[in-house]
Amino acid sequence: MKLSRIITTLLSGLPVTLTLLVFSFVFASAIGLGVAWLALRKNNFWSGAARLYLGLIRGTPPLLMLLLTYYGLPKLFMLIGVDINDWAKMIFGITGLSVGWSAYLSEAFRSAYLSVDKGQYEAALVVGMDSKDAFWQIIMPQTALIALPNIENLVIGLVKATSLVYVIGLIDMYNAATDLSNQNQGVYKLGIFVVLALVYWLIVLTIEWIFRSIRNDYEYVTV
């Protein structure tokens, strides 16, 4: 089998992989920020609810999360009379990964927030900032920088987790590769998987490059 055939087949799954990656990361971050915010509140009810969410989600294997989403979400929506069985599998894939990764990201945000030097907030207050300005000007940017290495790790983990969507029948890069391998009775298996590994590797390298550029912009900010 020609190498070009392997590459074109794998690349046909690339848009699905990248769509899953980008949208899951964005939604997971949004949910994660919200949950971290709740977890950090002094109110016991909300912080308790956030902790329960974190415990449950972090304790569920990502594969199982996808299955639960795919089979469970339509049942949940049925309860309120909405039929979502026709929704694209992509939506279930993104939802499952977003929920699964939201807990990890939430913990990255929360721990970063807690490790911002308390003196930074006090200094902001004593120059006359209100707590909102102090948060957005001083605390939030520093939290983001502290969280950056953890976020990078989680994004790289997410790249690999996108391959799990085969369980709900989405044809991503990984699924395209195994299909191609099976069509040929596994004869070209090794070659296909080596190419697949290289493509994942390139994606990860790109992500590392993006994070390194962000960090370089703040070279002299040590938090």
């Binding site: 006090e122 001083i138 920088l145 703040y218 900010v221």
Partner: peptide
């Protein structure tokens, strides 16, 4: 310990 804003 000064507490200068580290990101400024």
């Amino acid at each position: 310990n000064y507490n200068l804003f580290k990101n400024k």
